[in-house]
């Protein structure tokens, strides 16, 4: 099986990865082979089998809500310490809203 260029570009956009043309071709071929190998799983009859999201399941994990005993929390200074761009106690990012929707790029500019 193979994954079309269009599908690879779509998935890369969902994953926020600016892939090069070379990577688009490579991952299309490799994903196709990996998913092809998984045919044994995808073609199996699993009628009536429940899915497992987590093998050792716990339910309703609560902690006591005790006044004056807050859960561990970083200070603002600590939380911001690794930020690549920080200003006035905030993380600074490029513009998010503009005229039209920022569509992002589908293919890396070389």
């Amino acid at each position: 099986m193979s994954i079309s260029r269009e599908e690879v570009v779509h998935v890369a956009r969902l994953a926020r990865l600016a892939l090069t043309e070379e990577e688009i071709a490579l991952y299309g071929e490799q994903l196709g082979r990996i998913l092809g190998h998984a045919d044994r799983v995808t073609s199996l009859d699993t009628e009536g089998v429940p899915p497992t999201a987590q093998a050792i399941a716990l339910a309703n994990v609560f902690r006591p809500d005790v006044l004056n005993e807050p859960a561990p929390c970083l200070s603002q200074r600590e939380a911001l310490a690794n930020g690549p761009a920080v200003e006035a106690g905030h993380f600074r990012v490029p513009r998010i809203l503009e005229d039209g929707d920022p569509s992002g790029e589908e293919v890396a500019e070389e």
């Binding site: 599908e7 998935v11 994953a15 926020r16 890396a108």
Partner: peptide
């Protein structure tokens, strides 16, 4: 980059190696 989606996408393209990108692609698919 000039907008946030381009910044996210270029950062991840530059920061992740080939196997990590492959698995992100596989998982997202």
């Amino acid at each position: 980059a000039e907008d946030i989606v381009k910044m996210n996408s270029r950062t991840r393209a530059e920061g992740f190696g080939a196997e990590v990108k492959r698995r992100i692609m596989l998982g997202t698919y």
